[in-house]
Computed example of a mutant assay.
Amino acid sequence: MDFKEYIRVIPDFPQPGISFKDITTLLMNGEAYRKAIEELKTMVGDLKIDVIAGPEARGFVVGAPLAYALGVGFTPIRKSGKLPYETIEADYDLEYGKDKLAMHVDAVKEGQNVLIADDLLATGGTISTSVNLIRKLGGNVVGAAFLIELEDLKGRDKMPGVDVFTLMKYDH
């Protein structure tokens, strides 16, 4: 299946010069959404995964169904102030701004193998921060899976030693 057929590209959003890759059109198509999750499952199927972590918010719509398909747990990575229990936090740079991510202190157990799942790999700020949070909790990041990778932004370079799996690749 050509998953790019289900991605709406919106020029100059959220600011001039950005070519936004909108996954909502893929999510609205049940068959395409299911096949995308199945394809990611196949891509990461040889990894030993104990839990999937997904950054807010679109990492939830990729990570949770992937965790379900693999029969493993899911843990959210949220923006600061959104989790109700004790957290660890880290600042990071976005493609067009700054933010802070948090995880519950018990979200990942020492030695657990964690796959990070998200919709898009761009500059790598969100994902490299996610990798660092998981490692601080004692987790072993076994890979990162994405629907889309913007190759020219070289986000994978910010995650040395982490295998990256993507369904679609675009230039920025």
Rank of each mutant, 00 (worst) to 15 (best):
R8H: 13
D22N: 05
M43I: 12
G30M: 14
G30W: 13
A57V: 10
G143L: 09
A67W: 04
V131N: 05
L150A: 07
S80E: 15
Q112A: 02
I127A: 13
P55M: 04
Y6D: 01
D12L: 09
G111E: 02
L101Q: 06
F3S: 02
I49H: 07
M168C: 09
A144S: 09
L147S: 06
G17A: 06
F13V: 11
G97A: 06
K41R: 12
L47R: 05
F13S: 05
L115F: 10
P84Y: 03
G111Q: 03
E151K: 15
D119H: 00
M103K: 05
R135N: 10
L121W: 05
L40E: 01
N132G: 15
S130C: 14
K4Q: 10
G71R: 11
D119R: 02
E39H: 13
D152K: 09
D118I: 11
D171Y: 13
I10G: 03
V44M: 01
G124N: 04
E149C: 07
F74E: 11
A102C: 15
S128A: 11
D46N: 14
A57Y: 09
F165D: 00
G138R: 00
G125L: 04
K4F: 05
M1K: 14
V164L: 10
Q15H: 13
V114Y: 00
E39P: 11
D99Y: 11
G45P: 10
R156K: 15
E56S: 05
P84T: 04
A36I: 00
